[in-house]
Amino acid sequence: MINVAIEVGQTQTPEAVLFWILGPLAVLAALGMLLVKKAVHSALFLAWIMITLAIFYIAQDAPFLGIVQIVVYTGAVMMLFLFILMLVGVDSADSLTETIRGLRPIAIVAAVGFGGLMVSLLSRATLGRTFVGLQDANADGNVPALADLLFSKYVWAFEVVSALLITAALGAMVLAYNHRLVARPTQRDLAIARFRTGSLANAAGLPNPGVYALHNAVDVPALLPDGTPAQASISATLKARGDVIDSHPFQLEQLRPTDKEEK
């Protein structure tokens, strides 16, 4: 099933077709990741690159690596997504103003250096040759072969990396942990406090806003039995925004004269 291409030791047509369709898409996504303004779009392009890489791995007879790439990196990108939402804001977009002085030249030097390194490495790679050794490596299945390597030859590196990741996770938890001075009030405490403090009128919840046929009810205060508007019936957010409509015109006293006229 999976070992399709490998007896020959040369890239076969389906794999080549796959590569030439997905390769440009991956490159486009990579460029998009750098160039789009919204951070969330950037994260989405990143997820797309990860998935294309995973498909390449699977096509090259490394199904375990490919699937793990998707499981791990989609989770990671999802975390990135959350970080964007939490730290930068829902609709964050890149601004081009320089916040730290001299950042731009440093970034250019680093980018050119890294790019030069990559180009020199890639130019030394041997392309278009036949490949060898895959058959032996996958001899008794891809997963057992990988497990053998991971838990024998590379066990030390594996453990060190996991220790590093655990340290990082613990560090993030320590940094993010906010020690509470007072215990968090439970639902019970809150209910008791509502009755003990404040007015009894609010104990069962605030009054609903007014319901009038002509208006969106949430921005118009309800009328109390004596005809005065109940200010507590409007959301504090709307009040702060100044989006409250006066409920005075809806008072019954103003409607009564018309009743009399009809009679």
Binding site: I2, I67, V68, G75, V90, V143
Partner: peptide, 27 residues
């Protein structure tokens, strides 16, 4: 349809991509 040596992990991977639909819809 197909039998992958990592079939169950594949289901997990596909499910974790599927959640993107929900998150992106929300955002």
């Amino acid at each position: 349809l197909t039998d992958l040596p990592v079939g169950v992990l594949y289901v997990l991977a596909v499910a974790s991509v599927g959640v993107y639909g929900i998150i992106l819809a929300g955002w």
